[in-house]
């Protein structure tokens, strides 16, 4: 029993550690990361270790919006559909939703990207997009708002939200 418990704990930790946290569109990592759909190799500590190494050159699943111009360029004019996460540092639920959302985006292997907007730093953007409460998540394609929700959602709901955006 104790043994099983231990194994399970390692399993959980491993999954969390190596969940696709970044866009696998980068050739370097796409294969290995996305093959991680199979849980088997994750239990190998050696491989986990390799993945934990920071690789700055690879493209991120999500990025922080810097300013209005950046938003126009990387969100409105984005070729990929974008999920915009309006969040605030003082918002507890945002801290839960953010990583969950990143995970859901990561599963889509680069077919969608995620923009994070701190509403206190970029108040005008948040006001413009009608954000009243946080977290507010907006799905955008070609500069148009396709869908949105406010508050916490579970992983399945996030998956279907993202899938809907990329048209699956």
């Amino acid at each position: 029993m104790a043994h099983r418990l231990l194994v399970r704990r390692i399993w959980t930790v491993s999954v969390r550690d190596v969940r696709c946290p970044r866009a696998p569109s980068s050739a370097l990592y796409s294969t290995s990361l996305c093959s991680s759909a199979s849980p088997q190799p994750l239990l190998s500590p050696r491989r986990s270790l390799t993945r934990a190494l920071p690789v700055t050159s690879r493209r991120q699943v999500s990025f922080n919006v810097q300013d209005q111009e950046d938003f126009t360029e990387r969100v409105i004019n984005s070729e990929l559909p974008v999920v915009i996460d309006f969040h605030a540092q003082w918002c507890g639920p945002c801290k839960i939703l953010g990583p969950r959302l990143e995970k859901a985006i990561g599963k889509q292997k680069g077919r969608v990207t995620m923009a994070k907007v701190d509403i206190d730093e970029h108040t005008d953007l948040a006001i413009e997009y009608g954000v009243s409460a946080v977290p507010t998540v907006i799905a955008m394609r070609g500069g148009d708002v396709i869908d949105q929700f406010v508050g916490i959602k579970d992983e399945d709901q996030l998956d279907s939200f993202v899938k809907k955006l990329i048209g699956q």
Binding site: W90, C91, G92, I119, D120, T123, V134
Partner: peptide, 18 residues
């Protein structure tokens, strides 16, 4: 305390917009 204040600041901002 400051997180709560942050939420109030935002609430005021939204109320002005609305």
């Amino acid at each position: 305390v400051n997180n709560y204040i942050g939420s109030l600041n935002w609430g005021y901002r939204v109320a002005l917009r609305d």
